[in-house]
Design a protein around this nucleic acid. Sequence first.
DNA 1: CGCATATATTGACACTTGTCTATATAGATG
DNA 2: CATCTATATAGACAAGTGTCAATATATGCG
Lengths: 102, 102
Amino acid sequence: MVSEVLHQADADDLARRLKALADPTRLKLVSMLAARPDLEACVCDLPEALDVSQPTVSHHLRVLSDAGLVDRRKEGTWVHYRLRPEAFEGLTAAIRIPEPVS
Amino acid sequence: MVSEVLHQADADDLARRLKALADPTRLKLVSMLAARPDLEACVCDLPEALDVSQPTVSHHLRVLSDAGLVDRRKEGTWVHYRLRPEAFEGLTAAIRIPEPVS
DNA sequence: CGCATATATTGACACTTGTCTATATAGATG
DNA sequence: CATCTATATAGACAAGTGTCAATATATGCG
């Protein structure tokens, strides 16, 4: 918000990032990553943990990745996804309401 | 996130609030309210400012209102909507990533 | 190479969403 | 009361989304 009215392009971009987060399955996924000391997890653990199919997990990870909220790291056959805390800070900063001018 | 994996109901609720915000038109609307010293605006000014029809504005205000992000205040024929900063603080707190345990 | 396993992609389908036009409701005023 | 204006609701429609089963791709290993 940052005290000035959003331009269309900024509104579109911010909406895109927020949409990436605005899904229960992705929020659970993100919270699982956030609970790890290294902020990351192996894809292989997620379908069971989230109780959705493997392709569905893959889909959600792509959405988060496209929005810049997670990084992808390949390790042999396995793939690890890790939260990008800067991206979350950027998001929270973008939706912060300034103190009313009193 | 708050360092524990989200339960389904919490994930659903948080997703609902984030979805309410995750739309370019609503983000512009919110940023317009945020730019006002009193965090509020008359509905009558919004269709032109946002360049969408009056029913569309009404729809978006309802979405924001249902999510608890704005309050409604009727003043004669006019209706004013006002941001609820607590709701935004709640949101930003909910998506904050904890410091990694080093 | 050939097979087994991990992840990604495709395609389908039901459901949701953003927008509009048309219409309804509600408050103010003559 | 009749009428005008502000806002809300209803209904329609195109576009987007979440999920799955089926299939493709890629990596490790014997």
